[in-house]
């Protein structure tokens, strides 16, 4: 079986700090990591491969040159081959443009890797948090999709069966292949890379794909030009004020005041 895992390198949001003077995000010095949800997608692919060693896992990322580090991490964990889709022309893409570029790169790579039976993604990237690229790739390719996957129960070139997280329950859902599956956090953690794989990953070649490589790609659908959504402005959310003691005569009044306060900050 051929599995493609799409990954993104993101800043470690646990380490993000706000500059108190300019009120903007401090990006310098923030470590970059593989988007954790993509890590769950890769782990799902690795588990399929544990059961079926003939499985080929290819990882692909659209990003700047430094995204190579993230791809190498994936090689060290479980991937067999890595592709970096990178070009100035792709910069500034929103999710629609990004998914179009990835779809074009995927079709290009398939011409020698063979068709991918499954395309795995993390459900969302922790910087953009949109959760749109996965389903949009599925739409561009015309594939079926399963989102919010927790774990893969069965997988073969004929079809996939997945445990999925729904509103208030879990579902077991099946689809034929090819299928795009986006993953959320399961009950298990992704595996550690082994030293042998790490050393091999350090020496591995990461194949770069630029705009010029992809035959027939329509660059008006890439970058800022190809992005229907635009950022008008961004701001740091106002800091919470210090603790407030809620006081009133009766428990009912206290409860009402508390409810109003919580409602005021959109919590309930």
């Amino acid at each position: 079986m051929n599995i493609l895992v799409c990954i993104k390198q993101v800043p470690d949001t646990n380490e993000i700090k706000i500059d108190p003077v300019t009120n903007t995000l401090i990006r310098a010095g923030v470590p970059s990591i593989v988007n954790p949800f993509d890590g769950y997608a890769l782990e799902a692919a690795a588990r399929i491969k544990d059961n079926d060693p003939d499985t080929k896992i290819v990882v692909m990322s659209m990003g700047p040159a430094q995204a190579e580090d993230a791809l190498r991490e994936c090689l060290a964990i479980a991937a067999d081959k890595a592709y970096l889709v990178t070009d100035r022309a792709f910069g500034g893409s929103d999710t629609l443009a990004t998914s179009y570029i990835l779809k074009s790169a995927i079709e290009y790579v398939e011409s020698w890797e063979g068709k991918f039976d499954l395309i795995f993604c993390g459900k969302q990237a922790t910087d953009g948090d949109t959760a749109q690229v996965g389903p949009e790739i599925a739409e561009h390719l015309g594939y079926s999709q399963i989102t919010y996957a927790l774990e893969v129960q069965q997988a073969s070139a004929e079809g996939i069966q997945v445990l999925r997280e729904a509103d208030d329950c879990n579902q077991v859902i099946a689809s034929d292949c090819p299928c795009v599956v986006t993953f959320t956090k399961p009950s298990f953690d992704p595996r550690f890379p082994t030293i042998k794989r790490k050393m091999a990953a350090r020496k591995a070649t990461i194949n770069q794909i630029t705009a010029g490589d992809i035959p027939g790609i329509d660059l008006t659908r890439a970058g800022l030009k190809g992005s229907p959504t635009k950022v008008k402005t961004s701001f740091v959310p106002p800091r919470k004020e210090g603790g407030v003691m809620i006081q009133a005569e009766t428990p009912e009044e206290i409860a009402a005041k508390l409810f109003e306060s919580l409602n005021g900050v959109h919590v309930i």
Partner: peptide, 24 residues
């Protein structure tokens, strides 16, 4: 780490797993 890993594997460790990111 390369040195350590070589020694460990030679001396009978089953494998060496690497935790090199803060979350890991």
């Amino acid at each position: 780490v390369e040195q350590v890993a070589e020694m460990l594997l030679e001396e009978g460790a089953m494998d060496v797993l690497v935790a090199d990111t803060p979350p890991k």
